[in-house]
Simulated scan of single mutants.
Amino acid sequence: MSSARYALAVRPLLSVFNDAGIGLDEAGIAGLALLQSHGLAACAVSHRSARIGQAASTLDDGVVSCANDEAQALGIRAHEPLQPQIDQLSRRHT
Rank of each mutant, 00 (worst) to 15 (best):
M1K: 09
M1Y: 11
S2I: 10
A4M: 03
A4Q: 01
A4R: 00
R5E: 10
Y6S: 10
A7N: 01
L8P: 09
L8E: 08
L8R: 02
V10M: 09
R11K: 15
R11Q: 14
V16D: 08
F17C: 01
F17N: 01
F17Y: 14
N18D: 13
D19C: 01
A20H: 01
A20Y: 01
G23E: 06
L24A: 11
D25I: 00
D25L: 10
E26T: 12
E26C: 09
E26S: 15
A27Q: 11
G28W: 03
I29Q: 03
L32M: 09
L34V: 13
L34C: 05
S37T: 12
H38C: 12
H38F: 13
G39K: 08
A41S: 08
C43N: 07
V45H: 03
H47E: 11
R48W: 04
R48L: 15
R48P: 04
R48M: 10
R48Q: 13
A50H: 02
A50N: 04
I52W: 10
A55Q: 11
A55V: 15
A56F: 04
A56H: 11
S57W: 04
S57N: 03
S57T: 06
S57K: 05
T58N: 00
L59Q: 00
L59M: 09
L59D: 00
L59S: 04
L59K: 02
D60T: 07
D61Q: 14
D61T: 04
V63N: 03
V64W: 06
S65C: 14
C66M: 09
C66K: 13
A67T: 02
A67M: 04
D69Q: 14
D69A: 15
A71M: 07
Q72G: 02
A73D: 05
A73T: 10
L74T: 09
I76N: 04
H79L: 14
H79S: 15
P81R: 13
L82D: 02
Q83I: 00
Q83N: 02
Q83R: 15
P84A: 07
Q85F: 06
Q88P: 05
L89S: 08
R91V: 14
H93G: 10
